[in-house]
């Protein structure tokens, strides 16, 4: 069993919700990313989503766009991110999902990417602009069992499409709770409970909810409705602010700890 499935099985056994943290790999540098992942692990994050930067992240809001831009400018490339994951694996077994767009993966070589990422220690991949419909129709984008394929479901996903996506999901399903791009919001979206219930009616795969969650109150609310909570832009924003400081990893850990606690209390 891979690290993702093992973690979700353990959470289920102890009736706990997952805390999933997103950060951009290479922001501010890959060395700092290693430290930040370690801090996230120590703070209790169950899964780390690592953004593999792309120059044109059209599903991301301004915070993640700027982080990808900083990562690219710091010299982050796909091979370097995979090397960094090997370094992380020397001292952490936190499940890692690569969160990216198709072009960097396709350019690296779709199959080769899966193989090398898994060998480096990654557990899953989420390609934002690769819906299952395209993956099904392109011989060169066939499923590679090396990595779990995390699937997105959105509020606009029609009811009849939900079970089709759910049937293809591995690791966990990422329910994008908001019509929009990534980014922290002051209020959480409505209708989450209903949509999560309809997804869970179609699959045993855990459902994590993200997009716009930035504080412990929101995290606790969402954790009450799903198997896990994803927090991204709020962490990335903190890294943007403190990236140049030597203790940025500690600051991330301190920020995440109350979020994890809020999720674990549910």
């Amino acid at each position: 069993m891979n690290r993702l499935d093992a973690r979700f099985a353990a959470l289920k056994a102890s009736n706990q919700r997952a805390f999933v943290a997103y950060i951009a790999a290479g922001d501010p540098t890959l060395d700092k990313t290693v430290e930040i992942v370690r801090a996230l692990d120590a703070a209790g994050a169950d899964v780390v989503e690592l953004g593999l930067p792309f120059s044109d992240p059209l599903a991301d809001g301004i915070v993640n766009q700027m982080a990808a831009d900083r990562a690219i400018r710091s010299g982050t490339t796909t091979p370097k991110v995979l090397e960094m994951i090997k370094t992380i694996r020397l001292h952490s077994q936190v499940p890692i999902v690569l969160f990216t767009y198709l072009n960097p993966v396709y350019t690296y070589g779709y199959e080769r990417f899966h193989h090398d990422a898994a060998a480096a220690g990654a557990d899953g991949v989420l390609v934002l602009d690769l819906p299952h419909d395209e993956a099904d129709q392109n011989a060169e984008l066939k499923p590679c069992p090396d990595l779990a394929h995390i699937r997105l479901i959105a509020p606009t996903t029609p009811a009849q499409r939900v079970p089709v996506i759910a049937a293809r999901a591995e690791g966990f399903i990422y329910y994008v709770s908001r019509e929009g791009v990534t980014g922290a919001q002051s209020t959480i979206a409505t209708g989450i409970g209903e949509m999560v219930a309809s997804i869970k009616a179609a699959t045993q795969v855990p459902v994590c909810v993200g997009f716009g969650i930035s504080n412990p109150e929101q995290a606790a609310t969402v954790a009450g409705m799903a198997d896990g909570v994803v927090v991204g832009s709020a962490i990335v924003k903190l890294i943007e602010k403190h990236g140049a400081e030597p203790d940025v990893a500690a600051k991330v850990g301190a920020f995440v700890k109350p979020l994890v606690e809020a999720v674990k209390r549910v």
Binding site: A154, T156, V176
Partner: peptide, 12 residues
């Protein structure tokens, strides 16, 4: 060609 877009846009 094809439809390489985030899930949010597929229905539209």
């Amino acid at each position: 060609g094809g439809m390489f877009v985030p899930e949010t846009l597929m229905a539209a």
